[in-house]
């Protein structure tokens, strides 16, 4: 739910800083999830190899 005032305070486009931080954050999220998934998959493999 927005008031008309909220729209008045917006910029016309996003800044380069915003875009850069958003991309870096996305990379951190993807790398973190990848690290966690690989580690868990290696541990899970023990169920079939032990």
């Amino acid at each position: 739910m927005h008031t008309p005032n909220e729209a008045a305070h917006t910029d016309s486009e996003v800044s380069t800083t915003y875009r850069s931080i958003a991309v870096i954050l996305a990379l951190i999220v993807i790398m973190g999830l990848g690290y966690g998934l690989v580690d868990t998959t290696i541990n899970a493999a023990a169920l079939f190899t032990e």
Binding site: T10, Y18, A22
Partner: peptide, 25 residues
């Protein structure tokens, strides 16, 4: 505040999931 973070009318919504995922991770 809410009004400080209203996106421009033409905005790539795929920026937002990373922000949401970041705090949940």
């Amino acid at each position: 505040d809410r009004k400080a973070i209203v996106a421009p009318k033409h905005f790539n919504r795929w920026f937002i999931p990373a922000a949401a995922l970041a705090i949940h991770l």
